[in-house]
Nucleic acid binder design. Structure first.
Lengths: 250, 250
DNA sequence: CCTTTTAAGGTCAACATGACCTTAAAATAG
DNA sequence: CTATTTTAAGGTCATGTTGACCTTAAAAGG
């Protein structure tokens, strides 16, 4: 542990990092971006992407920088639709064997991105279904299983009360695209008709483009953009919808 | 900025602190515990209570320790009903003039506590209505106005979807006691009859004690304890209830 | 032309909500 | 003792939301 003396007095200082739980929906399955660690500790194990906060940047900036390094995608603020929010901080004394590292975890949601680029330090990055990881939490390095569990729970709750589900869809998208996002994240099947009624009546959730998309089979689907609303009123609660059997992803 | 070299390599380290937004409802008003700073920077200004995270403690422990130092009340985990949860982290490079300090903010909710004890460093501590502080954000030191704003918003949302409002009430309490908590935190008047119907029908929110309390005037009120449920289903949304004029606290 | 598949929209009973009203149980004033 | 006041507790009813289920629409393919 270090001691900082410049103005604060004798105060123990710690390394501060950001870790990202970057989610997408691929093949009707919620997936998270993992990196394979190229150095100790946990060499060869998989972990959430992240890195140290630099001296002159704030926490959100560090998260956006790491996000871009891993996905090569610009994040919130522009119109790419990518969603980034702070999840919480994790600072147990023993969580990093190298020393005291407090990490600020972020939750990122994005559409089905191209296969991620290798990070700047040439670590291999790939998408993994979260369902497998939640069942085998020891797979992940550090306390990243805990962070992932909290991130999944946060994402599921966000879909109930906000319109961020649209961040998982590349625009323009259909109501069915959006429904498949909800089904993948919640892991349950939803009634297509009732779902359509909810999201189309919710003010500011969907904005019709007027275009249609002709699928491989079936009737053409009307296409939408994400509306301006952030909150979903009334909310779309999964507790009451959880009566149907879970969806079986391919 | 310090550089930590023990195992992590050359990584800038930072001081890590916890700050607490401790709320209670006094005189039908949402109030927050502030301390008057006894040293620079911001000498004589008011701030949220807080302190540095120690080398061998985790973040929750640091928050509980600071909470006890300021309020002399044991926090979560026991049956005092005090609620403590992490709010978020704030780490802008310029937020503390002494140097780089990342703070993990916590939200604490408690019943109308006895007048708080002076902190261990003899700082004066007192309750202040949040409404005044939100109107005059420059009153607070550091970025504590931002933290307070986020904490109030979090508390208001928590009352919609969870049963934490009971943490504001000393047990046993009446339905009207609980309603006055909602009215104070949300700043709006609620229909007493509809409120009673909601909270008494919500599974696990209230647990009848069988006792009554005879007020100074009016019919005796049945008394309750907090039930075992953490989530409030269905939620009690303020958006739809916000049709009545705001309550004017005394 | 008919079937299959997905999209889109309708029906209806059950439930939740907001507005409002009635009754209950205490203290107090007359 | 009776009437009034005050707060608690519970009921009514029109309206809106939800979940379950059904019907129709628009494409492709045999």
């Amino acid at each position: 542990m270090n001691v900082q003396r410049d103005g604060i007095g004798a105060v123990e200082t710690m390394a501060v990092a950001v870790d990202l739980a970057i989610f997408t929906v691929r093949d009707d399955t919620l997936q998270v971006l993992l990196i394979e660690r190229g150095k100790a500790p946990f060499l060869g194990r998989v972990a959430l992407p992240g890195g140290y906060v630099r001296a002159q940047e704030n926490l959100d900036h560090a998260a956006r920088r790491e996000l871009q390094e891993e996905t090569d995608i610009r994040s919130a603020g522009d119109k790419s639709g990518l969603h980034l929010e702070q999840l919480g901080s994790y600072g147990d004394p023993g969580r990093d064997p190298r020393g005291r590292v407090v990490t600020v975890a972020y939750l990122a949601l994005g559409p089905n991105l191209p296969t991620p680029v290798a990070g700047t330090d040439a670590r291999h990055a790939y998408w993994t279904p979260v369902q497998e990881l939640l069942a085998a939490p020891d797979t992940l390095a550090f306390d990243h299983a805990t962070i992932l569990r909290d991130a999944v729970e946060r994402a599921r709750t966000r879909l109930e009360y906000t319109t961020v589900a649209a961040a998982f869809c590349a625009e323009p998208f259909s109501v069915s695209d959006l429904r498949r996002v909800y089904e993948a994240v919640w892991g349950i099947a939803l009634d297509p008709s009732n779902f359509r009624r909810k999201v189309t009546r919710a003010e500011g959730f969907l904005e019709a483009t007027g275009e249609q998309r002709i699928p491989e089979v079936g009737r053409p689907a009307a296409l939408y953009r994400k509306g301006e609303a952030e909150l979903l009123i009334p909310p779309l609660l999964r507790s009451t919808n959880a009566t149907r059997p879970p969806v079986a992803p391919g």
